[in-house]
Design a protein around this nucleic acid. Structure first.
Length: 287
DNA sequence: CGGCAGGCGGTTA
DNA sequence: TAACCGCCTGCC
């Protein structure tokens, strides 16, 4: 069943390539196919003639079983209720330097992702590179997740549930090539299957394998903590380049002072900007 | 071959 | 509390 939305401040590449998610893939025509939680879908955006960041968004679901009405699910997922124009204007007003980054990623929106999916994804992301992160998540899902649907002959699987992960051994997970992260995933499975997903509200950083950066990503991308400002190697690069700040501590203080409750949005604009414009980013994308 | 990729846990001072 | 080190893996 198709869902159609009139959107603005919206760009598929900006949204899916700005570092917040790992399970969407660009097709030759610029549409994306992927899966959010247990919902596989094809996402098409047709920009208007006047504004390439405004137009018609069509989400076509390919759920294996009838999921019921997903119009609200996708609206929430793409954060369609938020006025990104206002956020961009406010950030630009607070800080002139970030304008360049915002101008570069005008179509970015913060996806409202599933907490369990975010927890697993960002544990896997540590000391890792994006192609391999994607590979790890796909492999984990294909081997141990539930079949969720099929798009054009390709089967999509959800990330295995906490109970499923808790039942596995590191040996079971060896084919996924997670390295030392396998143990962290199993322990996360145990923590959540025993205590429920609400455990993350108070104990996110008690989970083994979740340090400050990973916790910050999970908070921002799945717990609506929009003030979170994850500082990774890319953000370090861009803060040094644009602001001349060198220490992580100063970066955090600057972000809190300058971007405040919009830190997460600022982080996404900055991350995407440096990833897509730096020589390192170009090299990475070429592969 | 060493270096590195969207860090973290553990140890040490 | 801060600084440092080793780490699975895959690709340069």
């Amino acid at each position: 069943m198709d869902q159609k939305y009139r959107v603005k401040d919206f760009g598929l590449a900006d949204i899916f390539e700005c570092g917040q998610c790992f399970r969407w893939e660009r097709a030759a025509d610029g549409s994306y196919e992927g899966i959010a939680g247990a919902h596989p879908a094809k996402v098409v955006f047709e920009p208007s003639a006047e504004d390439r960041y405004a137009g018609l968004l069509t989400v076509t679901g390919f759920d294996r079983e009838d999921p019921g009405d997903l119009s609200d699910f996708w609206s929430d997922y793409f954060d369609l209720g938020r006025d990104y124009g206002a956020i961009k204007a406010e950030l630009s007003r607070r800080d002139e330097i970030i304008r360049e980054a915002i101008n570069f990623g005008e179509g970015i929106r913060l996806l409202d992702q599933d907490r369990w999916e975010a927890l697993i994804s960002f544990i896997i992301s540590q000391n890792n590179n994006i192609p391999r992160i994607r590979k790890n998540i796909d492999g984990l899902s294909e081997l141990f997740g539930e079949e969720a649907g099929e798009i054009g002959g390709r089967k999509y699987h959800s990330i295995p549930a906490p109970e499923k992960l808790a039942s596995l051994t590191e040996e079971d997970l060896a084919p996924v090539r997670l390295g030392y992260r396998a143990r962290y995933l199993i322990e996360a499975g145990r923590a959540i299957s025993e205590n429920g997903i609400g455990y993350l509200d108070e104990h996110l950083d008690d989970i083994c394998g979740v340090g400050p950066k990973v916790a910050s990503c999970i908070s921002l991308f799945s717990m609506r903590r929009y003030d979170a400002f994850p500082i990774d190697t890319w953000v370090k690069q861009v803060m040094e380049k644009l602001y001349g700040i060198t220490s992580k501590k100063e970066m955090a203080a600057f972000a809190e002072k300058t971007f405040g409750e919009y830190g997460g949005f600022a982080q996404q604009y900055l991350f995407y900007y440096i990833r897509e414009t730096s020589a390192c980013g170009e090299k990475h994308l070429a592969k």
